[in-house]
Simulated scan of single mutants.
Amino acid sequence: MRCVISSRAGQVLAKGRLILHKSDNGELRLDLQTDGGTLLQGGIIDPDGNMESASQVLFRQFFQVWGMSDLTLSVTLK
């Protein structure tokens, strides 16, 4: 899935894609690979497929990278 991360003012901070990485023990992790080559690791997806906690971990990574909260992740399906 293609995505864009924007500030609350509408400035595009990064473009990239959401991806799932499978660990050696079979757990799936929600990550963001930016077009600039940065990999931001999100959390582990719950066994029932719920991505809420995994996305919260990913959004904390957004704060670490860009130093701001209240960012928007827009996803485009093609």
Rank of each mutant, 00 (worst) to 15 (best):
G37H: 04
L39V: 14
Q11M: 06
D70C: 09
G36M: 04
T38M: 14
S55H: 09
S7A: 14
A54Q: 03
D48Q: 06
I45Y: 03
S53M: 01
D46V: 00
K78Q: 09
G10H: 04
N50W: 09
D35I: 00
G26A: 02
Q64C: 01
D35K: 05
L30F: 08
Q61Y: 02
C3T: 03
G42T: 07
M51G: 00
N50S: 10
L13I: 04
S55T: 15
A9M: 10
N25P: 00
P47G: 00
V57H: 02
V4M: 09
Q56D: 15
L39E: 13
E27V: 00
Q64K: 15
L20T: 08
L30Y: 08
G43A: 01
V4R: 14
D46Q: 09
L71W: 01
D46G: 00
N50F: 03
E27G: 00
T76S: 12
R60A: 10
L73F: 01
L77E: 15
G43S: 04
D48M: 06
Q64Y: 07
G42H: 09
E27D: 11
Q56K: 14
L32Q: 02
L71D: 04
S6D: 07
G26W: 02
I44H: 01
K78G: 12
G43M: 02
L77F: 10
S69T: 13
R17D: 07
P47F: 06
N50H: 07
V4H: 04
S53H: 11
Q41V: 14
L13H: 12
G26L: 01
S23N: 09
G16F: 06
Q61H: 06
I44L: 10
M1Y: 13
M51T: 15
M51K: 14
D48L: 03
L39A: 05
R60P: 01
Q61R: 14
F62D: 09
L32N: 05
V75I: 15
L77P: 05
T72I: 09
K22F: 07
D31T: 01
A9E: 15
S53T: 07
V65C: 08
L18S: 07
Q61K: 15
M51V: 14
D35T: 02
E52W: 11
S7M: 05
E52C: 08
Q61N: 08
P47V: 03
V12R: 04
K22Y: 04
G42I: 10
E52H: 13
L39P: 08
L58H: 11
A9P: 02
S74I: 02
A14M: 06
R29Y: 12
R17A: 04
G42E: 05
H21N: 14
T72E: 11
